[in-house]
Computed example of a mutant assay.
Amino acid sequence: MKRFIKIVLSISFIFYLLALVVLLFLGTRGYVWTDLTLMEYMKRSSNFVPFKTISTYIKAIFSGSMNMDIPIKNLVGNFIMFLPMGIYLPYFIKRINVSVFSIAIIILLFVIEVIQLVTKRGSFDIDDFILNMFGALIGFGIWKVKVVQKLLK
């Protein structure tokens, strides 16, 4: 049974990574500034102010000033996108603690945000970073629940 669970988790991890690549780098991102220089693109598509985008989306939800799909997909999607990573990483990297996990996720998310910016396949948004990190930490917390560990170990 343990071998079966390991095979299922390994295969699902590969599909999860492929889905991340498609979502983060290959899908249409809605940016039309591809004719700009990289520096101009970086200025227009970056957000370094924490909670700026999050608060805009929350205000839009309550005021109805935006199609509800947009804030929900962005807030919930960014949160959920890295939640599985919080389960997969500690499963595959034994004896990982929250500090090492957090550093690994921070590096991974920073690299992803920079690649999106440099390749003009997205933006550098600190709020995406915050939501992704929070999702990954919640996933790590789920992993640490004894019932989940007994099931997956």
Rank of each mutant, 00 (worst) to 15 (best):
L24I: 12
E40R: 11
F25V: 06
L24E: 10
I142G: 10
L151M: 13
I61Q: 09
L152E: 03
F140D: 09
F13L: 15
K52Q: 14
F140A: 09
L137Q: 07
F129P: 07
Y91A: 08
M39V: 14
I58V: 15
F48M: 12
I61G: 10
K150I: 03
K150W: 01
Q149K: 15
T34G: 13
I14W: 01
D69R: 13
F124H: 06
L83N: 05
N97D: 15
S45K: 11
G77C: 04
I130W: 00
V145D: 10
I80C: 12
I87E: 03
T53Y: 03
T34L: 15
G141M: 08
V118D: 05
P90W: 03
L151W: 07
V21Q: 06
G64A: 07
L83D: 01
Y88N: 05
S102H: 01
S45H: 13
I107E: 04
I138K: 04
T56W: 07
R29Y: 14
F13Y: 11
A136Y: 05
T53L: 02
G64F: 04
P50M: 06
M42D: 00
M39A: 15
I96N: 02
L18T: 12
I87H: 03
V118Y: 08
T119L: 13
W33N: 15
I70Q: 10
I93S: 10
R3P: 01
I7N: 09
S102Y: 02
R95A: 12
S63W: 07
